[in-house]
């Protein structure tokens, strides 16, 4: 059969074997001024390390722009460009298209270059979702869109986004005398949506940098596989989630172990639960109660037991009633949802 889609060669990026075997070189270095314990900054560092020096990185507005790319003290060792808040997908597309045509026309050296565009949950799951979706249909352009999800519009002082968990206290949803729960939307299922809606996209994954090697190897796979790919990273944010910065690593682990944040990858259409999530699904370990995760964070401090039960029941549904646990909200059986406790 004829080949209709010409994917340019990518770099060979074998998985890193262990933390001890990681390269020493850093491509995201000093010069940034993120909060102490900022997991998103760690994602940037790991992402750049995983991608290596032959990369172009674009970043949309948000903490990872504002705090990382101060004029005269950029932390990026690889070429970097700011894209507008909703532009990560399209800017990656344009960059990748430019490299492709310039190499074809002999205007620049023909060699594989990684194109990564990162965006926050506000820039990605809200404003830029259309552009990311479009990019994932452009099968002939190599790029990775990495959405670092700190579960709020963090840079503008923690406002709720479509990716903020139910009930969270943000500066647009603080509990008041009349209404304890101001934010009553359930978190958008971005990775599942991208995987389900873009049959030409060869790789979608969820990661959490509390599991650094897993995260970096997902990034390497996404870059090596060719075509447009998407990674959704859950990043504990001490400022927005309101906890002591030294707990960041543990917070990520709790998100995964409570089943709130399932880890999986969809590689060439094949779905695999990964890491601790796979072990939970296989019954090797038990999910820890969401209470243990929620009550460590000030943003849920106003929760009553009913609120916690409701949250737990939604997470249980995701694990027990969804056709594929944690991935796509198609139910096994028809039933009505109970109304939320109030």
């Amino acid at each position: 059969m004829a080949t209709y889609i010409q994917i340019d060669p990518t770099q060979k990026l074998e998985p890193f074997k262990s933390v001890k075997k990681l390269p020493l070189e850093e491509y995201f270095t000093s010069g940034h001024r993120t909060c102490q314990g900022c997991e998103s900054a760690l994602v940037m560092k790991m992402m750049a390390k995983a991608a290596g020096p032959r990369s172009i990185i674009l970043g949309s507005t948000g903490c990872m722009y504002v705090a990382n790319t101060t004029y005269y003290s950029t932390s990026w060792v690889v070429p970097w460009m700011h894209t507008q808040l909703g532009s990560s997908g399209s800017a990656a597309l344009g960059t990748s298209a430019a490299l492709k045509v310039l190499m074809r026309k002999g205007k620049i050296k023909n060699e594989p270059i990684n194109v990564i565009a990162f965006c926050g949950d506000g820039g990605g799951a809200d404003m830029g979702v259309g552009a990311i979706s479009a990019t994932l249909t452009h099968a002939e352009y190599n790029s990775l869109i990495l959405m670092y999800d700190n579960e709020s519009y963090a840079n503008t002082d923690i406002q709720l986004s479509g990716s903020t968990p139910w009930g969270a206290n943000t500066t647009f949803s603080s509990p008041g005398k009349m209404k304890r729960i101001m934010h009553r939307r359930w978190k958008k299922n971005m990775a599942g949506m991208m995987a389900a809606g873009h049959p030409e996209c060869k790789y979608v994954a969820t990661i959490c940098m509390s599991y650094g090697l897993h995260g970096m190897n997902s990034i390497r796979k996404a870059l090596a596989i060719g075509g447009p790919t998407f990674i959704h990273s859950l990043d504990p944010c001490p400022k927005g989630w309101d906890y002591d910065p030294y707990l960041s690593h543990e917070m990520g682990e709790l998100a995964v172990n409570s089943g709130v944040w399932p880890l999986y990858e969809v590689e060439n259409g094949v779905l695999r639960l990964t890491g601790r999530t796979e072990q939970i699904a296989a019954g090797k370990i038990r999910r820890v109660p969401v209470r243990d995760y929620l009550l460590k964070q000030g943003r849920f401090a106003h929760f009553t037991n009913d609120d916690i039960d409701y949250f737990q029941s939604k997470v249980d549904d995701m694990w027990e009633k969804w056709l594929i646990p944690g991935v796509i909200p198609f139910r096994k059986d028809v039933e009505a949802d109970p109304p939320p406790a109030n």
Binding site: I56, L58, M81, T83, Q84, G86, S87, G89, S90, A91, A92, L93, G94, T95, A97, A98, L99, K100, V101, L102, K107, I108, G130, A131, S133, A134, H138
Partner: peptide
């Protein structure tokens, strides 16, 4: 490269990325 964008905002974002790459 002839790219059909998903909006004018994306058209210009594509243009921005492509022009920045030379």
């Amino acid at each position: 490269e002839y790219i059909v964008a998903d909006s004018e905002h994306s058209q210009l974002s594509i243009a921005h990325g492509a022009s920045s790459s030379g």
